[in-house]
Design a binder for these strands. Structure first.
Lengths: 98, 98
DNA sequence: TTTATATATCGCAATTATTCGATGAATTAA
DNA sequence: TTAATTCATCGAATAATTGCGATATATAAA
């Protein structure tokens, strides 16, 4: 069983997006950079939970952080990631019959 | 917390790809349609495990099956899915060892 | 019909994910 | 300095995932 470093990265990336709450966060960030303090009330889960999710997505390469005083601003890490997210979203729109 | 049907589909799709063994299977299928009997020895996990993984990926819209006698032939469900898989793989190539 | 092959499903144990509240640390405001 | 804000981390409870072997089912071959 060839479990190389690349496939671990890929799996981890998909795992980070494999949760509806984290997708909600990601969708919010498609609208632009936001601080954790604005993200977690919007999401409606505990601050500790959202904090851990954001950290996970940063480690997975989905998001990027920068500090701004006490706050931490999160955004989609880059354009390729954004495109991948949007393609998946479009796929879902096609597949789900409303 | 707005957990709509679309985001559940998206999460499920990513979840299906969020595992290095399942990515191994998917990579094998990028080379063309294969039956389960050829997939599971290549992967090196139990037949029951691979069977469940394949079913999961079909339900998630990643794969497609068709019957051929006793066998079941699996392939990547469509071109959009294939492109998404390849983009993620290219991303990993860039990100790993940098 | 009996046997062999291909796949599905069940129950189980081990690991990982989800989510919380409590608390800690850092920074800014009063 | 004290108080308030923002974020991280810990421990705990519950749920989900991972992977196996055993077994069931369906089809094909003998």
């Amino acid at each position: 069983m060839t479990i190389n470093k690349e496939n671990l990265w890929r799996a981890n990336f998909h795992k980070a997006l494999g949760n509806p709450v984290r997708l909600e966060i990601v969708d919010f960030l498609l609208g632009g950079e936001q601080c954790q303090c604005d993200i977690f009330p919007r999401i409606g889960l505990a601050q500790s939970t959202v904090s851990a999710y954001l950290t996970q997505m940063v480690r997975a390469g989905v998001l990027r952080v920068r500090k701004d005083g006490v706050r931490k601003l999160y955004r989609i890490s880059d354009l390729k990631v954004q495109r991948l997210i949007e393609q998946n979203r479009n796929l879902a729109r096609e597949m789900v019959d409303l």
